[in-house]
């Protein structure tokens, strides 16, 4: 990401970095089916977040996307194997598991001004009291659909968006950080 760093003003106080080597799985299942949820959790080794707008951290990150939809962020090299393991464990349930690694890119936004910069293009309340560690939201950032997650450190965010929006978002964030 030397290009992004070159674009950042030296006093921007915001860092934008693409997270390399991330893989993504989209999982659809009915959360009322406790056995399906448990089977998925056994494979993942961590909780499937059932509360809206939250994610669980562990070996992977599991983001809540909707009432029956999740996004699993894992190592790119592990995505296909994990997809296979989940498919096997959930074969008897009504589920859909799709490897969407190719279509998504994760970027990390950090630095003391990151919340101010995000707030320029995002309508949700980003104050840590409302949007703290463990919380995520699929929302619009500068009119692009993104999955925004608050990191465990203050003023650090993960932005997962469609690959085709990545350059646009990076340019927008870089520009927003300058003013």
């Amino acid at each position: 990401m030397s290009e992004a760093m070159a674009e950042s003003a030296p006093d921007a106080r915001v860092d934008i970095n693409e997270l390399p080597g991330r893989g993504f799985l989209n999982v659809r299942l009915d959360p009322r089916d406790k056995h399906a949820v448990k089977s998925a959790e056994q494979v993942l080794g961590q909780a499937m977040p059932l509360v809206a707008n939250t994610y669980s951290s562990g070996t992977h990150r599991v983001y809540w996307l909707g009432p029956d939809e999740w996004l699993i962020e894992t190592d790119a090299e592990n995505a296909a194997a994990l997809s296979g393991e989940l498919g096997e464990a959930l074969a008897d349930f009504n589920v859909a598991i799709n490897d969407v690694s190719g279509g998504h890119v994760a970027q990390r936004l950090s630095g003391p001004e990151s919340r101010t910069v995000l707030a320029k293009g995002c309508t949700i309340d980003l104050h840590p009291r409302e949007f703290g560690p463990g919380q995520c939201a699929r929302t619009a950032l500068a009119r692009a659909t993104v999955l925004l997650a608050a990191g465990s450190e203050p003023d650090s965010y993960t932005i997962i968006a469609a690959r085709s929006f990545t350059d646009y978002l990076r340019h927008w964030l870089t520009h927003a950080a300058k003013k």
Binding site: G66, T123, I124, A137, R138
Partner: peptide, 11 residues
């Protein structure tokens, strides 16, 4: 009903 209050532009 699932995500809580959001701005009109998301809908």
């Amino acid at each position: 009903p699932w995500c809580g209050p959001r701005a009109e532009t998301e809908f």
